[in-house]
Amino acid sequence: MPKSYLRQSALAHLHLEAHAVEVAGDAGVDLCERPFRGQLVLRGDCTDNAFRDAVQQALGVTLPVEPNSVTNVDQVSVIWLGPDEWLVVVPDGHEQAIEQELREALAGIHFAVTDVGDSRAVIGISGPHARDVLKKGCSVDLHPRVFGPGQCAQTALARCHMLLHQVNQAPTYDIYVHRSFADYIWCWLEDAAQEFGLAIIAQAPGASAGARAPESEPVVPA
């Protein structure tokens, strides 16, 4: 039996580190992959106080009930996906523990929680022209008067589905796309960003939940 396993992020085959710079410079757009971000899909009835309280108790974060909003505490973010659906984003390696805490807190309530950490690739985009690049492929209004930090939108970017989360005022956005589309959307972003000057960043700036973590032993799923 082999002793170690190299886990592969969605964009591992592009060897981005070979083209990357360590810190953001003066490029119009900075792109990075945020690999191995822990992601759980949580389903439940948000009109049920017991459900909301249990989630709050397990995660320490208020469940975002307002559409298109994100709540976060420390390294845990909860992204609204629908009136009964959320994406719980947690640090690499914490998925199982948090899933377990949710299961315990929600015992007796109709809910579902599922580890989907490899379902979506996460791409970080920031820089003075980050919004312009997104505007090329996204029809949602991202103007600061309308869309700001702590907001999210499920929509399309170019020709694929995207979950967009504005992380900060910079602006920095996290783009969640299904893993099989990651190569396409990365190439699309590089193409669209060219006119503004593009830098690939080795380490995601402010990537609390997405930084490369040491290998953890895989565990049998529940």
Binding site: P67, T155, A156
Partner: peptide, 11 residues
């Protein structure tokens, strides 16, 4: 009713 106004191609 949840996400607000969006282009028809999302629907």
């Amino acid at each position: 009713p949840w996400c607000g106004e969006r282009d028809a191609h999302e629907f």
